[in-house]
Nucleic acid binder design. Sequence first.
DNA 1: TCCCTATAGTCAATGTGGTTGACGAAAACA
DNA 2: TGTTTTCGTCAACCACATTGACTATAGGGA
Lengths: 162, 162
Amino acid sequence: MSDETAPPRAEPTLAAWELPLVLLGALRAHLDESHRRLAERGHPDTRPVHGFTLQAVGAGATATEVAGRLGVSKQAAAKTLGLLEQQGYVERAVDATDARRKVVRPTERGRDFLRQSVAVFEEIRAEWADRVGAERLEALHRDLWVLGADSARRLDLQSWLG
Amino acid sequence: MSDETAPPRAEPTLAAWELPLVLLGALRAHLDESHRRLAERGHPDTRPVHGFTLQAVGAGATATEVAGRLGVSKQAAAKTLGLLEQQGYVERAVDATDARRKVVRPTERGRDFLRQSVAVFEEIRAEWADRVGAERLEALHRDLWVLGADSARRLDLQSWLG
DNA sequence: TCCCTATAGTCAATGTGGTTGACGAAAACA
DNA sequence: TGTTTTCGTCAACCACATTGACTATAGGGA
């Protein structure tokens, strides 16, 4: 996709120290664009962590389960879930068969957020396919999957970086 | 996740919603492995944010310049730089030509950290090339560069995700 | 020269999100 | 039944970011 007569910075430098930066750059581009579009579709004020958490809730889960999936303490998960509840994305109900459990379920608004997320992700994927080629994007996806397969599936991003 | 006779998790699913996750997974794998090796080479207790900050310092910069490069407030940058100074990675000196400016420079230890980082990054890149193929890795690097070219070069990861 | 403005760095207060520890209520098990 | 485990929550604390206010220095005109 890089023609010779292109504007400056048309060619990446391919130094080894750039790898994490281009990974971060692409991730950031994806998430920033995702949330820009989600904001346009009725979900402003949501951040990546909300999407991850809602994804962890799935069709319904307890705070402790969500905590396990996110790799954070149950207190931290409960806090985030409380915020999502306050914003109308999830609702809590006491489990009928176990009075200790409080099952968190996405509301209609929460399900809409997840549907919109899928749609937006598909849009972005299609646009990325246009930019680098469908085959290249598929190879990229597959290779990244392989390279990151070992890494923990945790989403405790903030504490991880600090 | 239902592949036929294949070993578990042999084939990525290639769903659009997985793209950010595989990006994150690869980034995480890279940074975790980097810091694991840096710890072995005399730099334990360093985190990605330290490497980014040290990189932002370069040969020498003021706290405000570092803040600009990292995309954070000057107070936040000053705090991180204070920590790096305390750990012996940078030192501060008042600018001879401008008594307001305090120039931050990497110490020998700081320069060693950067050298070791480069070495480790090259090792990891070589290993990744083994795993997916040198050509594929080069294509991946190039494509990621293209896809992330628009995104802000900021490194304010923590606040960005939250 | 003197003032006015802009810049560099720091201090203080605040917000957010994470942690650990402790606890009561409910379930599961011996 | 009594003991142990699990779920959710409260409280205290910590790490890291923010904004606003402040001092000190530099620089550019009247």
